[in-house]
Computed example of a mutant assay.
Amino acid sequence: MLWVPAAAALALVVLPVIGLLVRTDLTRLPALIVSGSSLTALRLSLETAVVSTAACVVFGVPLAVVLARSSFPGLRVLRAIVLLPLVLPPVVGGLALLYLLGRKGFLGYALSVAMGVQIPFTTTAVIIAQTFVAMPFLVVSLEGALRNAGDAYEQVAATLGAKPWTVFRRVTLPLLLPALGSGAVLSFARSLGEFGATITFAGSLEGVTRTLPLAVYTQAESDVDSAVALALMLIVVAVVVIAVARPRALEGNPS
Rank of each mutant, 00 (worst) to 15 (best):
A243N: 06
V156M: 10
V167K: 01
T200W: 07
L86A: 03
S37E: 15
A114Q: 10
T24A: 14
A227W: 06
L177T: 15
G108A: 02
V139Q: 01
F137M: 12
G108Q: 02
V66I: 14
L26W: 15
A220H: 01
L212N: 07
S191I: 07
L186C: 05
A157C: 09
V171K: 03
I242S: 12
R248A: 11
I235T: 15
P136L: 02
I33E: 01
V208M: 11
L95Q: 09
I127A: 00
L42T: 14
L46C: 07
V208D: 12
A245G: 04
P73M: 12
L180K: 14
L10V: 13
T131K: 00
K104R: 13
R248E: 05
G252R: 06
F106W: 15
L230D: 11
V34G: 04
L138K: 01
A68R: 05
G193E: 01
A114P: 00
A220Y: 12
F195C: 08
L138F: 01
A125S: 11
P5I: 02
L146V: 04
L95F: 15
A31H: 09
F72N: 06
G161H: 10
V82S: 08
Y153H: 12
P120E: 09
A6C: 10
M135K: 03
P5Y: 04
V156E: 03
G60P: 09
P213Q: 05
A179R: 14
D25M: 01
V236P: 08
A41E: 03
I33V: 15
S45F: 01
T24Y: 01
L20V: 01
A6V: 11
P120C: 11
